[in-house]
Design a protein around this nucleic acid. Structure first.
Lengths: 189, 189
DNA sequence: GTCTATACCGAGATAGAC
DNA sequence: GTCTATCTCGGTATAGAC
């Protein structure tokens, strides 16, 4: 059953993805969802509270997607490659990275879900790289932490660059470039 | 001589860096610069026109900085390394990448300076990688284009990731990680 | 829980005097 | 070229009825 509250959260998730936080007005959420002002302010204190709920939901969703992908790969580097090489479109933008630069996100309460998500993602990737190094599959020239930072950056930066030059394929050019460089660091068995 | 027009452009450049386009109001520009509304709308048709002037100026400035850096390095890979490893702070943000995700930037007129800048940067980096490959200094496992895309993405994504997790050092962790991986692609002489 | 009416404010811009 | 007064619109939220 889709409660009105859930409907508002889902609509906000969509709009945050399309337009970010600052450019998404409560009126737009209401128009898009079909809900009324009364419902909105009954379920949430205001735009900020709704947005936080939406971001938490999005963060959970993306973490779960990542975990499912990892679960089907016993090889840690295969898992990393599978994640990085997912087909992405810079024109659509990252479902969560999209809003990082919004000025209002300087508010720690608003930023918290982003911080949590990227922190968790970084941790999960680091673990995979560490496992690959411990298993003598991967050179330890770079630390697991640094590899994770670079992986996330290549992905997020691909979205930024692709949006700027209006090239939807740029994200995957970046992520696949990272994977190719990473593969040169594999140790022969 | 700093004309009022120049003053407005400089103030807008600073505010675009700090807050992006959408969150920067004409009133803020006027307050910060000390100019009056009359001057503003005398010199520019509106906020959009001023922002374009500011972005063009910023793009020129950054291109020149890049060129100066390249000029002092005869070795192409040394030039790339020098650029990537400049000390940057994710807390401050990229002077130009900062605004790429602003919703209003979907307007082609507003986006044009960004597209030009990132296009030129990509071209310059590609040239350096090509030169390194032609000179047998660098493996050609990845194309110059793909290396350039990855370099820019690592940089821009470092800003995004660093802002999300509030770690100013993340940008350089990403850019230096890229350089370390790149260095494994150098060919022995 | 949901509706409509209302209020307040700042964004963005124009008009006309100086 | 610059100033102040003024205008319109939408963002964000509250009030009170249903």
């Amino acid at each position: 059953m889709a409660t009105t509250r859930d409907l508002l959260v889902e609509t906000m998730k969509q709009l945050l993805w399309e337009r970010g936080y600052d450019a998404t007005s409560p009126n737009l959420v209401l128009e898009r969802s079909g809900a009324g002002k009364g419902s909105f302010y009954h379920h949430f204190k205001g735009k900020k509270e709704l947005a936080i709920a939406a971001m938490e939901s999005r963060a959970d969703e993306l973490c779960e997607e990542f975990d499912r992908l990892v679960a089907v790969h016993s090889d840690p580097l295969a898992a990393v490659e599978a994640y990085m090489c997912l087909t992405r479109d810079a024109a659509t933008g990252c479902r969560i990275g999209r809003i990082v630069q919004d000025p209002s996100l300087e508010d720690p309460l608003l930023n918290a879900p982003l911080k949590r998500f990227f922190g968790e993602l970084h941790g999960k990737l680091s673990q995979l790289f560490l496992k690959a190094q411990t298993g003598a599959q991967l050179s330890d020239a770079l630390s697991p932490d640094q590899l994770a930072t670079l992986a996330i950056s290549a992905l997020q930066g691909g979205f930024v660059y692709g949006r700027a030059v209006q090239d939807g394929a740029a994200v995957n050019e970046a992520t696949e470039g990272f994977i190719m460089l990473l593969n040169t660091q594999r140790l022969v068995r």
